[in-house]
């Protein structure tokens, strides 16, 4: 609930989190569309968006399973440990850090915090270098590896450099007001 109107905050909470229902629930068959009983059995595994999981978890209706990208035994952890800079995090969780920060206190896994920090530390360096050197032609390929947060950081660096270069090249010093440029149509 960091920022109610922040679109990224909202989208981050849309990420799906695997969870297990503790009780059977009627009328919510759409979560687990296996048959037409319109019912979710106790103990069934479903993937729900984080905002819903949090509320249900606080009411003790379901238990959260750590998403695969944060899980202690997961492949992601090994890959981050091996070479964090080139892991495709976007396809795993496009709001990796946001979601990690939100989910860590709920699942009570104390290793998630340091894990996120280590991942960001290494990836930050890569973003820094790429943002200052990469040309626009090569960029798209690299951008697909980044999470939304990293991509924003990258664009912030890239766009300010581009703006500076544009200014230095010169070009038209005065901008014509849009009103003036318009020509009257011959009627």
């Amino acid at each position: 609930m960091a920022n109610y109107y922040d679109i990224d905050d909202i989208l981050a909470e849309e990420e799906l989190v695997p969870s297990v229902f503790q009780h059977a629930a009627n009328e919510v068959g759409l979560f687990d569309s296996s048959d037409d009983t319109n019912k979710v059995e106790a103990g069934s595994r479903v993937e729900l968006p984080f905002w819903l999981v949090r509320e249900l978890y606080l009411r003790q209706l379901l238990s959260i399973r750590v998403p695969p990208c944060f899980d202690r035994e997961s492949k992601t952890r090994e890959e981050i440990a091996a070479d964090a800079a080139h892991v495709d995090l976007r396809s795993r969780c496009s709001y990796f850090y946001e979601l990690g920060c939100k989910i860590a206190p709920l699942v009570g896994d104390k290793t998630i915090g340091p894990f996120l920090l280590v991942a960001f530390r290494i990836r930050y360096k890569e973003v820094l270098i790429k943002a200052h050197t990469l040309t626009l032609a090569v960029a798209p390929k690299y951008l697909t590896l980044l999470t939304k947060e990293e991509a924003k950081l990258y664009e912030a660096g890239q766009s300010s450099i581009a703006a500076f270069k544009k200014w230095r090249m010169g070009g038209p010093r005065f901008q014509i007001a849009p009103v003036l440029g318009r020509k009257r149509k011959p009627t």
């Binding site: 850090y97 998630i112 960001f120 820094l128 947060e149 950081l153």
Partner: peptide, 24 residues
């Protein structure tokens, strides 16, 4: 030129290394 990049990076680092994430 570096301002937008640096402030964003520092923000993220601050958030990730804040006490509730690390020092629990």
């Amino acid at each position: 030129i570096v301002r937008p990049f640096v402030t964003k990076a520092l923000e993220t680092f601050y958030k990730l290394s804040s006490s509730e994430m690390i020092q629990e």
